[in-house]
């Protein structure tokens, strides 16, 4: 379980992507994700796939690691696929009683699944190459203009940082509860299919209870170290744009232009 969820997990390798400024990564990711809305023709999908493939390579992380991260999404992917395949389109290729398989459905299903995979992969590239706290710091800096309008950016970025920091801890906790139930003869993993989704609900109850206790402890720890004086904070890790950030930004712009052109002329 613990190893399966990779969203939000940082990996300790070093690569060009690891060294980029978090602001560059956040903005580029946002722009690229938006450009995926333009995906339509085969050429555009090819371009997007090549881009994601390149980013995966550049991250210096094994492809298998990303593949493992897709596994928990399998159910969603299958559902999306079946939804399109069975319920859309007119050109029937194969049918059995009320089940009809259509050509349009097949293409649409494949394309939509592919789009989700691309989006998830590109998001995990960001979290895998950026330390949560650095990510939060980048976000804080990006949102800085808002703080003049009275928006508590420091608190929000700390919140995001903590959320990411606690993902592994909460997963460990969940594993412990599952084990405790298993030890008393109840094996959640032996429950088939959709029923298992509901079987997770009783686990969430104690999980919330311990998480609330944790949160209380943590709030003391944060207060005890003089957070939230209202006078602002200094920051140890300095963010600075380097040449590589410029290159990445240019690259993003070019990619988005390319997507636009493909959309218009393709």
């Amino acid at each position: 379980m613990t190893n399966k969820i990779i969203m939000g997990q940082f990996t300790e390798t070093d690569s060009v992507l690891h060294r980029l400024d978090p602001r560059t990564k956040l903005l580029s990711l946002l722009v690229i994700m938006l450009s995926f809305l333009l995906l339509k023709s085969f050429a555009s999908y090819l371009a997007a796939t090549v881009l994601v493939g390149m980013l995966l390579r550049m991250s210096g992380i094994r492809l298998g690691w990303f593949a493992r991260g897709l596994k928990p999404l399998l159910l969603v992917l299958i559902f999306t696929f079946l939804y399109h395949v069975l319920l859309t389109g007119d050109t029937v290729i194969w049918s059995w009683s009320f089940i009809k398989l259509t050509e349009e459905g097949l293409t649409k299903g494949t394309i939509n699944v592919w789009r989700i995979i691309l989006l998830v992969l590109i998001a995990s590239v960001l979290t895998a190459t950026t330390k949560p706290l650095v990510l939060a710091q980048g976000l804080e800096k990006l949102l800085k203009p808002l703080s003049r309008a009275g928006f508590p950016t420091e608190t929000y970025s700390l919140m995001i940082g903590i959320a990411i920091r606690f993902i592994p801890t909460i997963i460990q906790e969940m594993d412990r509860i599952i084990l405790a139930q298993q030890a008393r003869g109840y094996d959640i993993r032996s429950i088939p299919g959709f029923k298992r989704v509901f079987a997770y609900i009783p686990i969430l109850v104690p999980l919330f209870a311990t998480t609330i206790q944790r949160a209380e402890q943590l709030s003391y720890a944060i207060d005890a170290r003089a957070f939230g004086t209202g006078k602002g904070r200094t920051s140890y890790r300095q963010l600075e744009f380097k040449r590589s950030d410029l290159v990445a930004a240019l690259f993003t712009v070019i990619f988005v232009l390319m997507m636009l052109l493909i959309r218009i002329y393709g």
């Binding site: 412990r176 509860i177 405790a180 030890a183 686990i203 109850v205 104690p206 311990t210």
Partner: peptide, 11 residues
């Protein structure tokens, strides 16, 4: 288990 009180899951 260790710290068994953390694994109480019923209401």
């Amino acid at each position: 288990f260790q710290y068994p009180e953390q694994q109480i899951f019923e209401t």
